[in-house]
Design a protein around this nucleic acid. Structure first.
Length: 452
RNA sequence: GGCGGCGUGGCCGAGUGGUUUAGGCACGGGCCUGCAAAGCCUGUUACAGCGGUUCGAUUCCGCUCGCCGCCUCCA
């Protein structure tokens, strides 16, 4: 069985992924420009590719995961200027916020997170090579790539270029030979961070950093380049164009994920429905958001509103309840058929909704077996449920909450009352516990409490 | 304007030319429980609208409406 098939944007269909090197997988996840708090859409991005990576690692593949931090950019410069502080300061703050959120989601950190600022010289070198080859040209304000000279330019645009051009707005930059040409080097303007180059001081355009960094760290012909649907064109196409123009092998496959919507509308600050991931994670457990993301297919739009978050929290709770119930089951090999089905689902274009359905079906089957006192049947199912949840980065929690002495005393008193069949007292104590914010459950082992 | 995609039951969200049409959440009924909780069983039977193809369409085609994305910084 193939380990993985994915929808390749360049081909417009689901294709077999055959890595450059058997048993290895190199992926470049287009990372954030760190000038603001991450939003819930970024959270989806982090999770989608985290699931991809974890799944591959779970199957035994050696994954090399690189994700950049864009720390040289107009947005950063503007933000710093607005707030009267240095760009370094802005970058440090929001890069920190990015990883704080990422950690809270339980997302594995990339093996490398190259920063654009550390690659300026390499970018200058790449641009110089493009100029030397005659595919880039200098204007009064920068250096541009001549897209007309790039073989196959427009692959990721998914439409004829002349129609693109017809629809494109007139660029302010009149010196460009074509509206499709894009800036490789921006000549310095006052008050901006600059680096030296053969074309004078300035800074690189956005589309160059990923080319240099991905090729440097992953090498030519790396396996996968990913990002949001909006990056498909022109950003990713322009990265590709530079590699092609240099005669370098670039990414073998392209993967793009869909957007988060709020009340069926694209979220945006101007619409007032902008939700930061940072805010969300202050109110919601990272695992609940992971489950919410897993429940939809990565290429579909996904609704994130208080209601869907609450739904995810409720289903997560039922999974944790299952983990508690099955914590003492003997350790056995996970049910083989369940694992095989899981591979079939995730391996086919990362079908996490099917995998989640499988998870819940497996949980139900195990619960039913336990209800029938058949722990022999339940154990492998429970093991499989935990295994596949874990493979998607969802650790089920059997851990009880810390119980203070006063609460422990109440629990003991309630058990004594129940043993004495003094149900009035038992109920009174339960009410007390509930009022104190505990969920009370009776189990064969006596009263169990956990935080509501 | 061009191109790509979406519109599924109370709410999310898969999927499929017809026979048993995921899964979750919510709600109702039953079992279990001293009562609950958890769990199990079970019910609500949907595919935007209008046409067309077909023996048969939610699934294929066309149009309409609504929404999203790209063409301009963007996950």
């Amino acid at each position: 069985m193939k380990v993985l098939r994915l929808h390749d944007t360049a081909e417009g269909r689901v294709v077999d992924i055959e890595p450059r090197e058997p048993g290895k997988f190199s992926m470049y996840v287009c990372g954030p420009t760190v000038y603001d708090l991450p939003h819930i859409g970024h959270g989806r991005q982090m999770l989608v590719y985290d699931v991809l990576r974890r799944y591959l690692e779970w199957t035994g593949v050696d994954v090399h995961h690189v994700s950049n931090i864009t720390d040289v950019d107009d947005n950063i410069i503007n933000r710093a200027a607005e707030q009267g502080r240095s760009t370094d300061d802005v970058v440090a703050q929001y890069e920190g916020e990015w990883y704080r959120a990422s950690d809270a989601l339980g997302v594995l950190r990339p093996h490398q997170d190259p920063h654009a600022s550390a690659y300026i010289e390499a970018m200058v070198e790449l641009i110089r090579e493009l100029v030397e080859r005659g595919v880039a040209y200098e204007t009064s304000d920068g250096v541009y790539l001549d897209t007309s000279q790039v073989q196959g330019y427009g692959l990721l645009a998914l439409q004829p270029l002349d129609e693109l051009r017809a629809g494109a707005r007139v660029d302010v930059e009149e010196e460009k030979r074509s509206p499709l040409d894009f800036v490789l080097w921006k000549k310095a303007k006052p008050g901006e961070p600059t680096w030296p180059s053969p074309w004078g001081d300035g800074r690189p355009g956005w589309h160059t950093e990923c080319v240099v960094m991905s090729l440097d760290l992953l090498g030519e012909g790396f396996d996968l380049h990913t990002g949001g649907l909006d990056l498909r064109f022109p950003h990713h196409e322009n990265e590709r164009a530079q590699a092609v123009a240099l005669g370098r092998g670039f990414s073998r496959h392209w993967m793009h994920h869909g957007f988060v919507e709020v009340a069926s509308v694209k979220m945006s600050k101007s619409l007032g429905n902008y939700t930061t991931l940072t805010d969300l994670l202050e109110r919601t457990e990272g695992r609940a958001y992971r489950l919410l993301v897993l429940r939809s297919h990565y290429r579909s739009p996904m609704e994130v509103v208080p209601d869907t978050i609450a739904q995810a929290e409720a289903s997560l709770e039922s999974l944790d309840a299952f983990a508690r119930r099955t914590a003492d089951l003997p350790a056995v090999e996970p049910d083989r058929a369940t694992l095989d089905a899981f591979r079939g689902h995730i391996g086919e274009d990362l079908d996490t909704p099917a995998a989640v359905a499988l998870l819940f079906n497996t949980v139900r089957a195990a619960n039913a077996a336990l209800d029938a006192d058949d722990s022999g049947a339940a154990a492998p199912l429970a093991a499989a449920a935990k295994e596949i949840a874990g493979a998607m980065g969802l650790e089920l929690r059997a851990q009880a909450d810390e119980v203070d002495q006063a609460t422990a005393d109440l629990v003991r008193q309630r058990d004594e009352a129940r043993a004495a069949k003094d149900f009035a007292a038992a109920d009174r104590i339960r009410d007390e516990l509930v009022a104190a914010g505990w969920v009370v459950e009776d189990t064969p082992a006596g009263t169990q409490v956990r935080r509501a």
